[in-house]
């Protein structure tokens, strides 16, 4: 194996900083929408067997619009901040819009270049996770749980 040069070290440091962008750490330290919803339209639990992370997503959906969302659970900074950021991104959106966000976010995590970053907004901060393949599932756990909740709601049509 060749020894990386100084630039390489700098690049690796930068990758860690990219993974743990300040906005991510902020969501980790101060997670949004943590409380549960009293009578959610749908509630779904997600589990990552790799690391034992758990997420519960509560949704209040009215007339095809996500009026309220709550996420809670335990896990690493990436899974918890991703859940927090997701909750902010989907409130007030229609189910169809949430579906597009899901598609865009998971495409970004798969490393696709063809992603509408304007659509994703702040979620783009999680792009650095792509450089850490074992952590991608942490970032997508909340989103997959959300999607299962929506599918439950629409009888599998979402």
């Amino acid at each position: 194996m060749t020894r990386p040069n100084e630039d390489e070290y700098a690049r690796q440091e930068a990758e860690i900083d990219e993974l743990y962008r300040e906005v991510i750490l902020d969501h980790y330290r101060h997670p949004r929408n943590r409380a549960s919803i009293e009578s959610p339209t749908v509630s779904r639990q997600g589990y990552n067997p790799l690391c034992g992370d758990e997420i519960v997503v509560d949704l209040l959906v009215n007339g095809g619009v996500v009026e309220d969302v709550a996420v809670r659970g335990g896990g690493c900074s990436i899974s918890q901040s991703s859940a927090s950021m997701m909750s902010e991104a989907i409130v007030g959106r229609t189910v169809d819009e949430v579906e597009s966000l899901f598609g865009g976010f998971t495409a970004m995590m798969r490393g696709s270049d063809d992603v509408d970053l304007d659509l994703l907004g702040d979620l783009e901060a999680l792009m650095g996770v792509r450089k850490f393949p074992v952590r991608v599932k942490c970032a997508t756990l909340a989103w997959h749980t959300l999607r299962e909740a929506l599918q439950e709601l629409t009888g599998g049509k979402a």
Partner: peptide
């Protein structure tokens, strides 16, 4: 979280299980 510890340690060359 142990996974966050594991990722930082990995970049220091230290392989642990998390």
């Amino acid at each position: 979280h142990p996974h966050d510890i594991g990722t930082i340690l990995d970049r220091e060359g230290v392989a642990i299980r998390a």
